[in-house]
Amino acid sequence: MTGPLGVYPRKPSAIAELFASEKVLVGAVHLPPLPGSPSYRGQPVAELCRFAVEEARTYVDNGFDSVIVENHWDLPFLKPGQHGYEVAAAMGVITAAVVAELGPSVGVSVLSNAGQCSVASAWAAGAGWVRVNQWVNAYVANEGVIEGQAATTTRYRHAIGAGPVKVFADVHVKHGAHAIVADRTLAEQTEDAEFFDADVLIATGSRTGHATSVEEVVGIRDHTQLPVIIGSGIDPQNVGPLLRECDGAIVASAAKENGRWWGRAAPEKVRAVALAAGR
């Protein structure tokens, strides 16, 4: 690519390192409320582990490559740096149970945008990657002003020896001001994320479950040397055309029994996405 990134050697593909497929399908395991969140009702962490493994197996047994484990029911989300020890501990233990089933292709995302907590959980669990929604720059979101986590997360990853954990970073972040005011171009945001040492870039819609446009995927792909995957809005109707333009997708709502992120993964809906993707 042109610009300052041209002086850096191309990274080995994190997709190739983590997954056996060229076009990867990753299912989202949205955990029940964890210890410390307002809606937690005291379930033993072992029970949460069983839930996560059941969800993960539903995805992988029906054509997906792996999963990402997310604390999506810990509403309202905390800002980075506010998460307690109990969050990292629970996420690490639960993710380790999933890794024991699927191996290191599993990802972790601690919401909202908690890069360091995600890396700690992933490294303890043996997971291979984390998703960080706002890796560079800053934006206004539901949680308030959210700043990019690249500087603190890369230093923390190095400090604990977690260098093998890859960072999948969103570009043109959903639920944030950049998606509304367009104060920086898509090309600029793409190059910023690569310059700040992300390993994979994620194209996403404006909100959870909203479809990502082909134009946005191509716009990111054409301004990076990194793999690009889709992080929102995949369904059986659009998965084929979108996968032709990128390296994979994270799927949630379309694979759930109720078509919403808060439902359970449904085998028939997971299979429908996988079949439409050519699995």
Rank of each mutant, 00 (worst) to 15 (best):
T185N: 11
W261P: 13
T204V: 09
E188I: 02
G240F: 12
I160T: 04
E194M: 03
Q189K: 09
L201V: 12
R221Y: 12
I250V: 15
R157G: 07
G240E: 10
I202D: 01
L186S: 07
H178S: 12
L201H: 03
T190E: 01
W261D: 08
K166Y: 04
D199N: 13
V251P: 11
L242C: 00
D192K: 08
Q225R: 15
A254I: 10
A252L: 06
S232Q: 12
A203D: 02
A203L: 03
A193L: 04
T185I: 13
A252V: 14
V167P: 08
V251C: 08
Q237L: 04
D183S: 15
A169T: 13
S232W: 13
I250W: 03
A169R: 07
G233C: 14
V214D: 05
F196T: 09
I230G: 02
A203T: 05
P241T: 04
E216P: 08
T185V: 07
P236D: 00
I234V: 14
P241H: 02
V214N: 08
V167E: 03
S213C: 15
P241E: 09
G161S: 01
S206P: 12
K174W: 05
G219S: 05
P164F: 06
G248R: 03
L186W: 05
V251H: 02
D199I: 02
P241M: 00
H175S: 10
H223L: 12
A211D: 13
